[in-house]
């Protein structure tokens, strides 16, 4: 007798746990062939707020990790993805991506994580500076993470669009709340499972499935979200995002990139979500005892 397949329950990912949406609602996206992808959580405004709380709670600890440690953890995420490669490819194909494209999307995603893993402990060596001020002070600038970031990938990809934004956002020590692709949500939840087993502290990445038009506004207007990463070109969404920045001076970064392009990764995607902090300290200037011998 043929073995009955065990189906997976797709859940959302908040604070390192996999709850169902507090609203108890679901939706059933279909692929191009009309096959149902599954009963996917239809996350609510309340889930968005819970996710922001989880992200804020995780922020201090993640930002204070050593950059080297964050680097290792990002690398570990890539390792976990590599191990689940077949699962991601299957999900992408099920969601309507060709076999060849699915394969290259997963490989690109893994390689991109490794690329950003390597940046963690180099950001400040490239973007920091010692500033030669005229007064007798030691003065230096470093980059620091902005805080909690709302991540809104382009809905047209299931995995690479999400990884291309999440990796640079968390590399510097930000935490984030991610809105999954509405039509192709499967990879984002499998990605959450990879995160949960890769030493990423709970709350650093939170992933919600559901309707973008329900979740985007509560996320963008949340007063405890410091920045937004938005990929897409919907005029109305962009206007709403810009306007929401006026509430609490959110940093809004908008992208229209083709993430399958191997070059669509660099340090500036990281620094888009960084603040520059400059520190001054006096230098004791006694005079006389200089080293001019």
């Amino acid at each position: 007798m043929e073995r009955l397949e065990v189906l997976k329950t797709y859940k959302i990912y908040i604070g390192g746990k996999f709850p169902r949406t507090e609203s108890g609602r679901y939706y059933t996206p279909e692929n191009k062939k009309g096959e149902q992808l599954g009963n996917i959580c239809l996350a609510s405004r309340k889930d968005v707020r819970n996710a922001v709380v989880a992200a804020r709670k995780a922020f201090g600890g993640w930002a204070e990790r050593s950059a080297f440690n964050r680097s290792q953890i990002l690398y570990r995420i890539a390792e976990m993805l590599e191990g689940r490669k077949a699962q991601f490819i299957d999900e992408l194909i099920f969601q309507g991506v060709s076999h060849k494209e699915a394969n290259s999307e997963v490989e690109m995603s893994i390689d991109r994580l490794i690329y950003y893993a390597g940046w963690c402990d180099k950001i400040n060596q490239v973007m920091g500076s010692v500033n030669p001020v005229s007064s007798s002070h030691f003065n230096f600038s470093v980059t620091e993470p902005t805080g909690v970031v709302g991540v809104v990938p382009d809905g047209s990809s299931s995995l690479i669009g999400l990884i291309s934004l999440v990796a640079p956002v968390i590399a510097s020590g930000n935490t984030c709340v991610v809105l999954s692709s509405e039509a192709m949500p499967l990879c984002s939840i499998t990605f959450a499972e990879a995160l949960a087993t890769s030493d990423v502290p709970g709350g650093v990445v939170n992933i919600l499935t559901g309707m973008r038009n329900e979740m985007l506004q509560p996320l963008a207007t949340h007063m405890d979200v410091n920045a937004m990463a938005y990929a897409g070109n919907k005029t109305e969404e962009i206007k709403m995002l810009d306007e929401s920045s006026a509430l609490n001076l959110k940093r809004i970064n908008k992208y229209q990139e083709n993430w399958m392009n191997r070059d669509m990764q660099d340090l500036y995607f990281i620094t888009d979500f960084c603040e520059v902090k400059t520190t001054w300290h006096p230098i004791e200037n006694i005079g006389g005892a200089t080293s001019n011998y």
């Binding site: 500033n131 030669p132 001020v133 005229s134 007064s135 002070h137 003065n139 600038s141 520059v276 400059t278 001054w280």
Partner: peptide, 9 residues
């Protein structure tokens, strides 16, 4: 303290 070489913001 302020200086042209020192970022502010």
């Amino acid at each position: 303290k302020f200086d042209p070489a020192s970022p502010f913001g």
